[in-house]
């Protein structure tokens, strides 16, 4: 077993309205940040887990996303091993 540090990013799917992202976008413009095209808000999970291999760690994380971390009706997810 090896200890892996993973980062799971969950974001709203394209086409799903993100009013929080919109509000942040408006606030950035108000602060004078020019050129901001779009802001989409999401969630990041730092998961530390034991697994036999990097491959099985990723499999397990994908399954966590499907079952709990993301609501795949409205959200996409990305899994990445950081260490």
């Amino acid at each position: 077993m090896t200890l892996f540090n993973a980062r799971v990013t969950v974001t709203l799917k394209n086409g799903v309205l993100d009013p929080q992202g919109k509000a942040i976008e408006g606030s950035l413009s108000a602060l004078g940040f020019a050129g901001v095209e779009q802001v989409r808000q999401g969630k990041v999970f730092a998961v530390t887990l034991n697994a036999d291999s990097k491959k099985s760690a990723i499999q397990s994380l994908n399954s966590m996303c499907e079952k709990l971390l993301a609501n795949t009706v409205i959200e996409d997810y990305a899994v990445e091993i950081v260490a």
Partner: peptide
């Protein structure tokens, strides 16, 4: 049930 309930559009 199908679908999802998201943050109110007016926040």
């Amino acid at each position: 049930l199908p679908g999802a309930l998201m943050r109110n559009a007016g926040l």
